[in-house]
Simulated scan of single mutants.
Amino acid sequence: MTKEACETCHPETCTSTTCETKKAEKLPSKDINHIKHVIGIMSGKGGVGKSSVTALLAVALARESYQVGILDADITGPSIPKMFNIHRPLQGSDLGIFPAESPLGIKIISLNLLLPQEDDPVIWRGPLIASAVKQFWTDVLWGELDYLLVDLPPGTGDAPLTVMQSFPLAGIVIVTSPQELANMIVRKAIKMASLMKVKILGLVENMSYILCPDCGKEIYIFGPSRAEEAAAKAGIPLLGVLPLDPELTTLCDHGKIESYQGMLLERVQGFISRISL
């Protein structure tokens, strides 16, 4: 029988054999690994820029001299290696897998770095996806990290469930966009985190507006911001809003996100100061 989340039970006392919210044992990591904080970056739906927010957070932390890693748990739609211009296959040893490393020293693991061609599709069912995500935690030689950011796929499926059950999460950051559709779906992610007893560190509204290049006016192309309303309804902190920036898009396409110097980076640095671990 397929296991489902019980919306009415308490995971600690649930006796149902079909409830996926029950507390699972955390997976061990390599003895060589010492990771202070594991943070998940999550969205309810795709297309809200979750991976770019993850990458910006990593860059901002690295520029503050923190040791940072990114675990790309978006197994079927990985985009992190492209943003950092990492294409070479990963190297392994008897001890485990060595993550790739960016010029700023950000350590990265992604299934795209294990494929013969980066545009090869990953046509896997849920159990295989969950197994790959677990191996990225148990078999990778991360070493000493201050922060490991886990870029989760959109939705509330196998990969987010595996991470929430099996990783020692300090909490998750929720990414959304101004559309009511996105906010409706992101509420599912917020409820999932609540059911799994995972701390929500805050909400980021991405793609909130674009600045007119001539007059500097804020143009809300997706409608008015709903960030404060969404955070208040969910009872979670609002970390802030991010506008669309064509420069960031161009740099991500060319694998040069670490060269970005725009306002989004300053905003993300502000987010970091407001995250309570």
Rank of each mutant, 00 (worst) to 15 (best):
T2F: 10
K3G: 15
A5R: 03
C6Y: 07
E7F: 13
E12S: 14
T13I: 15
T15C: 12
S16Q: 08
S16T: 06
S16E: 08
T18S: 14
T21F: 07
K23M: 12
K30S: 13
I32G: 15
H37W: 00
G40N: 02
I41N: 00
M42G: 12
K45S: 08
V48L: 04
G49D: 07
K50T: 15
A55R: 03
L57C: 12
V59W: 08
V59S: 10
Y66R: 10
Q67S: 09
Q67W: 00
G69P: 02
D72P: 10
T76E: 13
T76F: 14
S79G: 09
S79F: 04
I80Q: 06
P81T: 09
F84E: 06
N85D: 13
N85T: 11
S93T: 11
D94M: 12
G96W: 09
I97D: 12
I97S: 09
P99W: 00
A100R: 05
E101F: 07
G105R: 00
I108G: 04
I108K: 01
S110Y: 04
N112F: 05
N112I: 14
L114G: 07
P116K: 12
W124T: 13
G126F: 04
V140L: 07
L145H: 01
Y147R: 02
L148W: 01
G155R: 00
T156Q: 02
D158Y: 01
D158R: 03
L161R: 04
V163A: 02
V163W: 05
S166H: 11
F167C: 10
F167S: 03
F167D: 03
L169A: 02
A170M: 03
G171D: 07
G171S: 11
V173A: 06
V175A: 09
V175F: 05
Q179G: 04
A182L: 09
N183H: 13
I185Y: 01
V186R: 00
K188F: 08
I190H: 01
K191H: 15
K191R: 15
S194R: 11
L195G: 09
K199I: 11
G202A: 10
L203H: 05
V204I: 05
S208V: 06
S208A: 14
I210Q: 06
G216Q: 03
S225E: 10
A227Q: 04
K233Y: 15
L239G: 02
L244I: 15
E247S: 15
L248E: 07
T249E: 14
L251E: 05
C252Q: 06
D253F: 05
H254G: 13
G255N: 03
K256R: 13
K256D: 13
I257D: 04
I257A: 03
G262P: 07
V268P: 03
V268T: 01
R274A: 15
